[in-house]
């Protein structure tokens, strides 16, 4: 994955680290590896802390970033996938199912991208069609029926903008989920793990808690789309990403998310296991916080959370 130019300075060090790690059991080499790793972590953390919004967008889209099925594989046991919207089709761009998370049964919903070309096409680049959103709602209602908390993983460039999707009511499918998620009587925990692409992301993201991974992004339109409309030039995407404030710290400052989940020093794509640990901790804590709440508390808190977005303070002026 050569796409991130700001990672180039670390390539040499990372290569050396891999070499050193081949000498397992050699104390000298192990010590050298530890020192090198500490230095690389420090340097990468510094670079990652200062990424621009556009660079974060590129990290959020990185092909080696963990996807929903990776999180499911690492965080759940006994996973059972549930498929189909019972109306038209199954949508491989959204994964739904149930499994055990730290000994408790949960429902999981998430966008799914593919890693190689064939998988990318199969998953439609993580862009769901109406049947994907309808499947998600069917499964969320099943979670409600069986009293299971819902964990969602958001990672989509956006809902699929195609002829067939329009025919089958892409807008209606998203709208319906927004309204019905507000009514769910079980805890809903949302984590943006990669791209939070507009309505296509939000349709599985109305939660009691909304988290973003440190290098994930959330936006009303892709930076390229925004740039081609407002700048009339898609190449201005870096400017658009900056102007729209798509990065997690911006979203937190705007009061639109609850927690930023820390990524390893070189980003989630550099160390899946560390990412899974980080996500696991936050989800476990939040599940704990929400499990004691009554249905009324869950509904009211979810309502109040979204109700407050842009309502108070400086976002509105009464003149």
């Amino acid at each position: 994955m050569p796409e991130l130019d700001f990672e180039a300075p670390f390539a040499e060090g990372l290569k050396r680290l891999t070499e050193l790690r081949a000498y397992r059991g050699d104390p000298g080499k192990e010590r050298e590896a530890a020192i090198l790793k500490a230095q690389l972590d420090k340097d990468r953390r510094e670079v990652y802390a200062n990424l621009t919004s556009w660079q974060r967008t590129l990290v959020a889209r990185h092909g080696n970033r963990p996807y929903t099925l990776d999180y499911i594989g690492a965080l759940l046991t006994d996973f059972m996938e549930v498929k189909g919207d019972r109306r038209f089709a199954d949508d491989p761009a959204i994964i739904c199912g149930f499994g055990m998370f730290s000994g408790r049964p949960v429902c999981v919903i998430g966008h799914q991208k593919g890693r190689d070309t064939k998988a990318k096409i199969h998953r439609n680049f993580g862009m769901p069609k109406p049947e994907g959103y309808r499947k998600a709602m069917r499964v969320m209602r099943m979670a409600e029926k069986f009293g299971r908390p819902i964990i969602t993983f958001v990672d989509t460039p956006g809902a699929y903008p195609g002829l067939d999707a329009e025919e089958r009511g892409q807008a209606e499918a998203i709208a319906f989920n927004l309204r019905e998620m507000a009514k769910l009587t079980v805890p809903v925990i949302v984590t943006v793990v990669g791209e939070g692409g507009s309505g296509g992301a939000l349709a599985i993201a109305v939660g009691n808690r909304v988290n973003m991974l440190e290098n994930s992004v959330y936006s009303v339109i892709t930076p390229e789309g925004c740039a081609s409309i407002l700048w009339r030039d898609a190449a201005k995407a870096p400017e658009a990403a900056k102007a729209m404030k798509v990065a997690a710290p911006d979203m937190k400052a705007l009061g639109l998310i609850d927690d930023i989940i820390e990524e390893p020093p070189g980003g989630a794509h550099s160390d899946h296991d560390a990412t899974f640990d980080s996500v696991r901790k936050v989800l476990a804590r939040q599940l704990g916080e929400l499990s004691g709440k009554s249905v009324k508390e869950l509904l009211d808190e979810r309502y109040d959370k979204f109700r407050a977005m842009g309502r108070l303070g400086q976002d509105l002026v009464v003149s």
Binding site: V206, V220, I221, K245
Partner: peptide, 24 residues
């Protein structure tokens, strides 16, 4: 949604829909 208010605009979709859930 209005691009110039970024994700704040996006979240209005959820805010209004949540209110409509109660009206429903």
């Amino acid at each position: 949604a209005r691009m110039m208010e970024g994700a704040l605009s996006l979240m209005q979709m959820a805010k209004i829909s949540s209110a409509l859930a109660r009206l429903d």
